[in-house]
Write a protein that binds this DNA or RNA. Structure first.
Lengths: 243, 243
DNA sequence: CGGGAAATTGAGCACAGTCAATCAGTGTGG
DNA sequence: CCACACTGATTGACTGTGCTCAATTTCCCG
């Protein structure tokens, strides 16, 4: 099985500045350690949960990379996001006590299991934790609105540029390069997320390469001209680094 | 000014089965009445809040109709949702203590002001209220994922059909007709929400009319064949009413 | 009743989708 | 260890949906 229980502690986790414990006091974090007692391993290609699965917990990505996707009644599916270390998955399940999307590991991954009833219980005691959970959900809502903007009003080039910039920025916040990355998802998954076909993703990558903006070799991407990408997303930002 | 304070009570509101108080006990609802002490009127075309405004409260729509929209750095904007009576607006503001989208009244409207710190305080006392707030935020996330599916994988006809069905279903839950409605938004706003140009919205309406599926006259819409619309959204649902 | 915003409709075009062939990379089994 | 199969990526040619630009028309609202 791909499930394995491991004792863990937020207080000693190197992701605590990115993840759930952000901003908690030592005492609060200690309490949190009691709530978050198990980890779970998920193999590449396996589901952390599927649409329809009963909702019990949120999950904090500890290592690895996930995609979440929803499926329409007639079988079309849409990737709704990609999640990396320190990000929280599963908030879609709260409304109906079951998940409405699936979370699939794109590489061997490990998550911290956060039983939601215990999280609610603890957040009734600590307003910092309570507020932090509200923030995490609000952040997801704001992120989703950004994706709607992308899907509703941008052209293929702009979408892919925005996608690359977002990915590299999040990776950079985790200590990786600002200009190089390995894509963990296929062209088809990128396309599904960005509302375009895999061939268009591939062609757009090639065009960026022809223009000298990036270097692509399969999953490897080197961003040679960040400003050019920013200009594509937002023509206003004329070369000057926006804060 | 378009601001006016009025004493109000959730416990005697006719929207309490749709809105925030859903599922609360008499005692809890009485406590909630103390939190929600003011209403605010918003004139047609005016903003309940704008992007960048400091976040203090959530708002429950009491009457009228709103749109929320985000604006990109270069001025494009995207309608992210339409809200009607009983729905909650403003959760985008929690993460950064300021709103990331604007909420504009599409007709003269009235909202209940829910100061967020007091809501957090009360939800630390009542787990029913706490869980209900989590559900409301989760519902928004799930809704957003549905919009992504629509924007990312549907064609113009399917988008508009899904939009009409969603709108009429929500209106029906509020006691309005299942087949007739007045659109409170312009073709341009519909287009922005659905990721298409206003001309395409208009043309698609006309096509539906030619096919005898609906009757449209400016803002008035009569759905003559709900099944045909459902078939457009989901070809699988072959005439049989899906549960 | 008149002005202006909103909606409709048309013609032509472009971006991205479709279908198809080829190539590259990876992992498996003989 | 190499051959082979398979998935994923690239590229090409063609097509079609929806966008652009433009001209009317309709309907509100003052």
């Amino acid at each position: 099985m791909d499930i394995e229980n491991i004792k863990v502690a937020c207080s000693s986790c190197n992701l605590r500045e990115l993840c759930l414990p952000l901003g908690l006091s030592a005492e609060e974090m200690q309490k949190l350690d009691h709530v978050i007692s198990t980890r779970r391993r998920v193999k590449r290609g396996a589901a952390l949960f599927n649409a329809g699965d009963p909702f019990t917990s949120l999950y904090a990505v500890r290592s690895g990379f996930f995609k979440t996707s929803v499926t329409s009644a007639d079988g079309r599916d849409q990737v709704t996001g990609f999640q990396m270390a320190g990000e929280i998955i599963g908030m879609d399940g709260i409304v109906h006590d079951k998940h409405s999307c699936a979370a699939i590991a794109l590489e061997d991954a490990e998550v911290c299991v956060l039983p939601f009833d215990r999280l609610e219980q603890l957040s009734r005691e600590f307003r910092t934790l309570q507020h932090h959970i509200h923030k995490i959900m609000s952040r997801e809502i704001v992120r989703d609105h950004g994706v709607m903007l992308l899907l509703g009003s941008m052209r293929a080039e702009e979408r892919l540029a925005a996608f690359l910039l977002n990915l590299v920025q999040r990776l950079h916040a985790r200590g990786f390069s600002q200009s190089e990355l390995i894509l963990r998802m296929t062209r088809e998954e990128i396309g599904s997320y960005l509302g375009m076909k895999l061939e268009t993703v591939s062609r757009t990558f090639s065009r960026f390469m022809d223009e000298g903006i990036i270097e692509v070799k399969q999953r490897y991407v080197h961003i040679k001209n960040t400003q050019a990408l920013q200009m594509l997303v937002n023509p206003q930002s004329n070369g000057c680094a926006a804060s």
